[in-house]
Design a protein around this nucleic acid. Structure first.
Lengths: 196, 196
DNA sequence: GTCTATAAAGAGATAGAC
DNA sequence: GTCTATCTCTTTATAGAC
């Protein structure tokens, strides 16, 4: 894959609503060319096929999330605060890239078959959270669940699924979007049992 | 779709490792015929195509989960107990059908494009949990998060993601499987903050 | 880098006999 | 219900000029 000019990278995003809606399988490369205005021959010049196009866009977003998460992991406060910040970053970016996220979550199988993408997913979602859980258990600001992996799943799972839901629901829902991230992390932190 | 003989339904499961591994898109209907021993002509006799074959298997499992969940929702104890039971059912069935679950989670986009499957998913996962959260908030055995939908996501998300993980990891991992369901629901119930 | 045209192969789906 | 054979169509991907 040759280095992709920014000009083209931007245009590629225009194909995402299509891909999100009907899946990559049903999206013909001619449609991508038509929708984005990038000639098919040019697409093949830069990419080996449509899988690589989508993977490129995934990588783009995941790298951005990973970078931002790294920053969020350094803020002042308790581990819980940092965890809240990281989850906020993740959700915000996912929601901002609604269609790309829908394509990502809707085609997790494809993603998990690419080791490069799996690594990017880990760097963006799993690793930051696992680190913070371990850190928090050590300094006492988070409960020690005894299983950082399961704990991480308990955080990432809701994030992914809630994004999937918002991504599925047609965009007409111009609900104020409230503070999904905040509400979600509050539930995750406090749990579902009544507090004593 | 004609009513599928049990004989054939059973054989179809033999194609699942293949589908789980390479995705339905990459799985040729000839492969399904070869692997299951069901002649291709017979497959077309009962199904309109490979999508319908997979959807049939999904429905099968989801219906079983929904039925069992309905039972679990009636057991004695607190709402939290019932929630634990329901999640236990869900995880157990998913893990038992490892490859089918991998196919399901790996191709959520396809699933969400079928309204029948979306309804089955809701009946198996979302509805039971949402009911219990509402019930628990009312009788005080669960915290009132003010948003049953978000609360449900906080439960279902970890379930789905943890199953995805175990489904991705090669089966060589004959780890005792411990009590994933129990550990997971404990974390979800108690939250990640230290208890006072 | 982009165009037009085309190869060419794959795979889904069916026909029609048994 | 199952078999063999085949059709047909789509879609990827490339060739070669500009």
């Amino acid at each position: 894959m040759r280095s992709v000019p920014a000009q083209i990278a931007i245009k590629l995003h225009q194909a995402l609503p299509l891909i999100a809606e009907q899946g990559l399988e049903q999206t013909k490369i001619d449609e991508i060319a038509d929708t984005t205005g990038v000639p098919k021959a040019t697409l093949y010049y830069y990419f080996s096929g449509k899988e690589e196009i989508l993977a490129f866009l995934f990588e783009d977003m995941l790298t951005a999330i990973a970078d931002e998460a790294k920053v969020a992991m350094e803020i002042e406060g308790t581990s819980a605060d940092r965890l809240t910040a990281v989850v906020g970053v993740q959700i915000r970016r996912l929601v901002e890239n609604r269609d790309l996220s829908a394509a990502l979550v809707g085609d997790l199988g494809r993603v998990t078959r690419s080791s490069a993408l799996v690594e990017s997913l880990q760097a963006a979602f799993y690793s930051p959270i696992e680190s913070l859980l371990i850190e928090g258990a050590a300094d006492g600001s988070l409960r020690d669940t005894g299983n950082p992996m399961l704990g991480s799943m308990a955080v990432i799972g809701p994030v992914i699924i809630s994004v999937l839901m918002t991504a599925i629901v047609p965009p007409d829902a111009d609900e104020p979007d409230d503070d999904v991230a905040g509400d979600l992390i509050a539930i995750i932190l406090s749990g579902l049992l009544p507090r004593g």
